[in-house]
Design a protein around this nucleic acid. Structure first.
Lengths: 222, 222
DNA sequence: CCGTTTAAATTTATAGATAATTTGTGATTC
DNA sequence: GAATCACAAATTATCTATAAATTTAAACGG
């Protein structure tokens, strides 16, 4: 039996590019040239174009009709927009998921919180944080809603990595613990309230640019 | 000057197919064969595949890796899911749009409501209904949010056309009027509350199938 | 009647051709 | 002499045409 090629080349390219954009290896506004990318992946430019379309749908790239596609840029306004959307949709998901939450799931979510608190770098903190959110939301069993939340999470992560690429300070996530506490006690309304506030929390941080001047970086921290 | 080719062939194909799926000309589960579609549009299959990717992102088609793409099917569960998502997101959009609403906009929205009440067929009712929602939400100036709402509206419309393809009874939209009333009086909380309830209202209707048996059809009516 | 093999249809990917946009160069004007 | 406009060349995206791989179906044999 040969190697099972479960997904298409276009999907593979799309995943790699998405990761590069989210982690900041590809900077906002950078041009994505299909021929170059095709060459890098040892493929032709047709699957590359299909990958572009997927990135576009996820909000990670923007395509101008006959002028090519660029990495999507963002500003504080868009950080806020994504935070608000996540708050609403995650609140909805938690309400629907609550009846199906087991103590086993909540234990796993607590473990994810601990893992996040012990994370020494942004990347692993983000991974643990996403695991927490997914764990308590997936039982809502609403695929379209979960897919939408997932896309927003990717964009959130991009903001996060943009602001805290290398320097990350350890902090304890009291919100996650409060949410779990309310869920264990069956107090859904408070759990949702904390979650929605939590996701809207936008961290702010001064960043020194190459010229010595400082600009403010913003990111959703939750 | 020649005909301005503002958008790509792929976008054009995508729009036409989306319309066919939404109006029910293409039934759920129907296979979309790229060569046939390419031939119909006098194009090759590359732009067709790109159109497929867009439809997939909108939730109108599903693609299995090497087995082609089909028109997305749906059930009552998904109707509910879309209704809940629309309720949350439209509520959010209205809250953000409220400070920017002018009496001129509200007048146009009222005109759209009247047009809806006078509509004799589903299609024109849907068009007027969508116009109403867009008018009061667009001033939120959140492009990603509005795009998400727009996609959900398309899916809503698909459910609607599926249930009431030909027989549509005229009805007066009290909810729209109540929303406008609250907005005019500056009572945002009540306006949002009515809107969220309004969008979650799922109409139900018995439909006679070819065999003589009856099944229930469902659709978001708002 | 069921499983295997063969053939047709269809998706996926490649390579090449076309069209449009951008960029660089040169000429003309102020 | 500097700046702007026009034109040309190169780069890049888009589409067509063709080939390879995979799935679906159909036929054959047990």
């Amino acid at each position: 039996m040969t190697t099972i090629n479960d997904d298409t080349i276009a999907n593979r390219i799309s995943r790699v590019l998405a990761d590069r954009i989210v982690t900041g290896q590809l900077e906002p506004g950078a041009k994505l040239r299909q021929d170059h990318i095709a060459e890098e992946f040892g493929a032709s430019h047709v699957p590359v174009r299909e990958a572009f379309r997927k990135l576009e749908a996820q909000g990670l790239a923007v395509s101008e009709p006959r002028r090519g596609v660029r990495v999507a840029s963002f500003d504080l306004k868009e950080v806020r927009e994504v935070a608000l959307m996540r708050a609403e949709l995650e609140g909805l998901a938690l309400r629907q998921a609550a009846p199906h939450l087991t103590s086993s799931i909540l234990d796993q979510a607590e473990a994810a919180t601990v893992a996040g608190d012990n994370s020494r770098d942004v990347r692993s903190w983000e991974e643990a944080n996403r695991r927490f959110h997914r764990l308590i939301l997936v039982p809502c069993a609403m695929p379209r809603l979960l897919a939408a939340i997932d896309d927003l999470h990717s964009v959130s992560a991009r903001f996060l990595f943009s602001a805290w690429r290398s320097d990350w300070e350890v902090r304890t996530d009291y919100d996650h613990r409060a949410i779990l506490g309310f869920l264990r006690r069956g107090n859904l309304d408070n759990a949702v309230a904390v979650l929605e506030r939590h996701v809207q929390w936008i961290g702010q941080k001064p960043v020194k640019s190459a010229t010595g001047s400082t600009r403010d970086a913003f990111a959703i921290v939750g």
